[in-house]
Structure formats: C-alpha cells, structure tokens
C-alpha cells in the first residue's frame, strides 16, 4: 500500500492529506489527554509505533506468487492503544519509511488514510464487534485480517480514483489483482500474529489492554475453580 511519489494527481494528494490531517489532529488530542491521565500511555504508544514501523516494512516472500509484501500492524496497534492515536503515529511511521524507499513524502496522507486510518479503524471495528462473542484470538485475529485486506483495497481505490475516475471499480479490480495474490497469505499471517499477540497480552498483562478502554475478563485458574467448587 506504499504509494510512491508522483503517481497520484496533485488534487488527490491534497485531498488525502486534508482527510488524514483531521484524524491526525483528533489522534494528537487523544494522545495528549490519555498521556496526562496515564503517564504509561506515551511509552506504550511509542512501542506500538515501533512495532508498526517494523511490521509494515517487513517484506515477507510469498513463494506462490514469486513476490513479497508486508503486513500492516495497525489493527493490532489500534486494539491496544486506540484507533485515533494509531492514525496519528502512522503518519510519523510513514515519514520514516520514505527513507528506505517505501511510499513517498507527498503520499503520506494517502498512505496514512489506507494503513493508519482504514486499517486501524476497520480492525478496531471488527474487534469491538467480535470480542465477547468469540475468543480473544479470533476476535483480534479477524481484526488483523480485515484491517490488512481493507488497507490494500483502499490503496487500490486511491490509485483508481486518481488515475481513472471514469472507471473506478474496474481499476480497483486491476490494482487489487496486483496486490491480492501476494497479500492474501500475509493477511492470514497477520490474523495469526495479531491473534496470538493480543491473546498473550490479555492473559499475561491484562492491564496493558486498558489504553483502548477494555479490561479483559479474569482468566479462570484451576485454583479459583476448585475454590468455587468447594464453596458450592
């Protein structure tokens, strides 16, 4: 989804920047508010940003297609620190990634919209909808999967609407044909990765899940079960 400089028309470059800036602004306000209320929020956000930086620049070879691509990491970050802050820090992540030839300076807005905003919000939405109805692994994992796929679908949309506004759907299909065969196995990898990480944190360090306003249910231990049985 790293759209390079020069491809999008100037009007769409400005449009995606403006849209992204709204989310970045709200994200910065939330970061300030949360870090005042909880001093541990900022270092946690920094760690999540580092994770997104590494994950979204980590090219994994996909033997079936003979190419490589990368996961996103933003759905996982949104589950842990909240989606608006992720939209803000992803813009910084994308800036650093331009140093290593990923994306472009003028397209940070468009790339933030696809990965930092659509990826984070769709993943967070799936997480909100599924947690409590299924296991933490599947709720978080499906959030990672959906966030990953929608990120690339959005990038295809951004390219299509800028280059061929008269045939958007057709060109979304064409650009997705470039992304999908390589991205689908990685989306499944992101499902497993996100599910395992969030489940592990929820079980071992449940207090780390409070930043996005969720407290995991207490893990039932054998001791507690025995006590309950004894009392009953």
């Amino acid at each position: 989804m790293h759209i390079a400089d020069g491809i999008l028309s100037p009007a769409w470059v400005i449009f995606w920047w403006l849209v992204a800036l709204v989310f970045i602004g709200i994200g910065v306000i939330q970061i300030r508010r949360k870090s005042i209320n909880n001093p541990q929020y900022l270092p946690m956000l920094a760690l999540m940003s580092a994770a997104v930086l590494v994950i979204s620049v980590w090219h994994v070879p996909v033997p079936v297609t003979g190419s490589s691509s990368h996961p996103c990491g933003t759905p996982m970050a949104a589950i842990i620190v909240g989606p608006f802050p992720v939209a803000a820090v992803t813009s910084i992540v994308l800036f650093f990634q331009t140093f290593v030839g990923h994306g472009g300076l003028t397209t940070i807005g468009a790339n933030d919209w696809s990965m930092g905003i659509v990826g984070a919000f769709s993943g967070y939405g799936v997480w909100l909808g599924l947690r409590g109805r299924t296991s933490i692994f599947w709720a978080a994992g499906l959030a990672g999967f959906v966030g990953d796929i929608l990120t690339y679908l959005t990038a295809a949309f951004e390219l299509a609407i800028s280059i061929h506004p008269e045939a958007v759907l057709r060109y979304i299909g064409i650009f997705m044909l470039g992304y999908a065969p390589t991205q689908l196995p990685l989306a499944i990898m992101e499902l497993v990765f996100t599910g395992l990480v969030v489940r592990y944190i929820a079980e071992v360090r449940p207090e780390m899940m409070k930043y996005a306003g969720w407290t995991p249910p207490p893990v039932k231990t054998t001791e507690a079960t025995e006590t309950t049985r004894g009392a009953g």
Binding site: G6, P61, S67, G101, G178, Y179, T182
Partner: peptide
C-alpha cells in the same frame, strides 16, 4: 536468493502498473 523482489515487492509492482496505466511517473523524493 529466490528473486522475490524483496526491496519493492507487490507495492512496487502496483506502483509500476499504475504508472503504466496513466498515473504519474513514480519516483523517490529523497
């Protein structure tokens, strides 16, 4: 080693496709 275009991957492939399909020439500002 297997020639999987590890530096650019699918992103580069689609960027090239977009350039060929009428988008502007992709370049690296830095």
């Amino acid at each position: 080693a297997l020639g999987f275009n590890m530096s650019g991957g699918a992103d580069d492939k689609v960027n090239s496709l977009a350039t060929a399909d009428g988008g502007g020439q992709a370049h690296d500002s830095w």
